[in-house]
Amino acid sequence: MKKLWQMIKGCPLFSILIISGVIVTAGGYVGAALGVYKWDVSFHHPMAQTVLLDERVATGTDATSTDAPGKSELTSESTGSAVAEEQTTEVKSTEKQTSENASTEKTTEKSTEKATTEKATTEKATIDTGGSAAPVTRQTQYKKVKKRKARNSCYRDLTQIALETQYPYIKVDKSYFDDALFIGDSRVEGLALYSGLDNAEFAYMEGLTSFGLMGEKIASNGTKTLTELLKSKQFRKIYIMLGINEAGYDTETYASTYIDAVAQIQALQPDAVIFMMGCMHVSSDYSASHDIVNNDNIDDKNGAIAAYADGIKLFYLDMNTVVDDGRGGLVKDYTWDDIHLQAQYYSLWEQYLYEHGLKDDAFK
């Protein structure tokens, strides 16, 4: 022991290395025990994968393959020079074939990229003009908002708000709605009673929801079911506003049921364009004091159904843009109960509809 001490004392660098090794090892075990480090490190670790993938790209072999060394070893002394030469020839041949394949793939990629660019240019031109003999899908766009924590499990944290389907809308007059049908709850009832759209047809009921929608007697003053109406008459435009009475259902269930009803309507009215109207907000004061019927919940559910819009036969419209108070709620002076519009303000909704008409060829 005395000799060991004299040797360490005579070699300070060796002493530092030994002590450092002990400290690092001990620190590693302590860190692992505390959960700071992991006991195991595998080839699936992101850093290891990065290094291995770089090597694979450079060599053309799979560096993570467990049998790769035994199959691709070119300098093994046990195989002899003849085998090594033969394997080298095979590798060169493979590399040549790989190079030719890469060249072919690159040419194909360029061709595909060119075709995609040409298609995108064509689509943009179609979107700019509105309507086309070859319809273009217009996916719903969303506006990002600062995360708003859900106050009830029936809806999700709000991080985005759906925007109306992008389309070069045109201004239309009252006659545009001669072949239109409006479906909804008491809010749509208000539109029927207090707007000037008396030439359109309405199917509504107080408390109406998307659950069992097709079997409800909401048409012809409550004497016909929606299914019966849609079988007896064809419409070119169908507007739907629901959601306020489904606020207590979770968003996924609501959206699934709503879209199922839309699919049934489309089956009965294959030539109609359907407009999903975003559920109208409640006043900001009302929203702030209710954990279920609030505007974050409404926006979450609106965003869920808006995702299905294609801008061809299914559009998403949001009349909240003309009754909003700047805080994401219904203007207090526009409502008599924080939920429904006062009679004179249904004209704002009506005007919004006049300004969101589609060109004739969109109905082909």
Rank of each mutant, 00 (worst) to 15 (best):
K3G: 05
Q6D: 10
M7H: 09
K9N: 04
V22P: 10
A26G: 04
A26I: 09
G27L: 02
G28Q: 08
Y29P: 00
G31H: 13
A32N: 15
L34I: 03
V41M: 03
S42N: 15
H44G: 11
H45N: 14
P46L: 14
M47V: 01
T50A: 12
L52Q: 05
R56L: 13
V57G: 14
V57W: 12
T59Q: 07
A63T: 06
S65N: 04
A68N: 00
S78G: 08
G80T: 10
S81F: 15
A84K: 14
E85P: 12
S93P: 11
E95L: 01
K96G: 00
T104V: 13
E105Q: 08
E105G: 07
K106P: 02
E109R: 12
K110C: 05
S111Q: 05
S111N: 03
S111G: 00
S111H: 02
K114G: 06
T117Q: 06
A120P: 11
A120G: 11
A120L: 13
K124E: 04
T126I: 11
T129E: 08
T129Q: 09
G130W: 06
G131Q: 10
S132V: 02
Q141H: 11
K143N: 05
K144I: 01
K146Y: 08
K147M: 06
A150H: 09
S153C: 06
R156A: 14
D157P: 10
L163T: 11
Y167R: 02
K171P: 11
K171M: 09
V172N: 05
Y176P: 03
Y176D: 03
F177A: 00
A180I: 08
F182C: 02
I183D: 09
I183M: 06
R187I: 08
V188P: 00
E189S: 11
G190R: 08
A192P: 01
L197T: 04
M205P: 00
M205E: 00
L208G: 02
A219H: 10
S220C: 14
K224S: 05
L229Q: 00
S232G: 00
K233D: 10
K237R: 08
K237G: 06
M241P: 13
N245P: 07
A247Y: 14
G248Q: 13
G248P: 12
D250R: 02
E252F: 13
T253W: 03
Y254D: 14
S256D: 15
Y258I: 07
A261T: 09
A263Q: 13
A263D: 15
Q264Y: 01
Q264G: 01
Q264W: 03
A267Q: 02
P270S: 01
I274A: 07
I274W: 04
G278L: 12
G278M: 12
M280L: 10
M280G: 09
H281S: 15
S283M: 07
D285N: 03
D296L: 10
N297D: 05
D299I: 13
N302H: 01
A307W: 02
G311W: 04
L314N: 07
F315Q: 07
F315I: 02
F315G: 04
D324E: 05
D325L: 12
D325T: 11
R327H: 09
R327C: 03
G328H: 00
G329L: 01
L330D: 08
T335F: 12
T335N: 12
W336K: 15
I339L: 02
L341W: 08
Q344Y: 01
Y346L: 04
Y346C: 00
L348H: 05
L348E: 06
E350L: 02
Q351L: 14
Y352L: 06
H356I: 14
G357I: 13
A362L: 11
